[in-house]
Simulated scan of single mutants.
Amino acid sequence: MDRLRATHHEVAAHGRSSGLDLLKGEGLPDALRAAEVVVDTIDAPSFDAKAVPFFRKTTANLLRAAEQAGVGHIVLLSIVGIDRVPDVDYYNAKVLQEVLVQEGPIPYSIVRATQFMEFIDKIVEWTSDSDSVRLPTTRLQPIAVGEVVDTLADVVTGPPFNGTLSVAGPDVFPLDELGRLTLQAHHDRRSVVPDESAGLFAAVPPDAIIAPAGAMIGRIHYTDWVA
Rank of each mutant, 00 (worst) to 15 (best):
I82W: 00
T223P: 02
S18E: 14
T138H: 12
T127Q: 15
R5F: 14
V167A: 04
T7L: 08
D83M: 01
Q68A: 15
V95S: 01
V99E: 13
L28W: 07
A208N: 00
V37I: 10
R3L: 13
E125Q: 13
H221K: 10
R190L: 08
G146T: 15
H221C: 09
L77E: 00
P212Y: 08
P206A: 04
G214R: 02
G163M: 13
T182Q: 12
I79Q: 08
F47K: 00
S109M: 06
T138W: 10
F116V: 02
P29Y: 11
G158H: 11
A185S: 15
F55R: 00
A198N: 11
L178K: 04
Y108A: 09
E196K: 03
D129A: 05
V156Y: 01
S128P: 04
V192G: 14
H8W: 03
V155Y: 12
G104L: 05
D89A: 15
F47A: 05
S78R: 01
P29L: 08
A93M: 05
V37L: 02
G15E: 12
D89C: 06
T127R: 10
T7A: 12
K122T: 10
L165S: 03
I106F: 04
G27F: 08
R56N: 09
P142V: 05
R190P: 13
T59S: 09
L100S: 08
T182V: 09
F173Q: 07
V149R: 04
A44C: 01
V156A: 15
V111A: 05
W225V: 01
K50P: 01
L28I: 08
L178C: 10
V155N: 09
P107N: 10
V111S: 00
A203Q: 13
E125L: 10
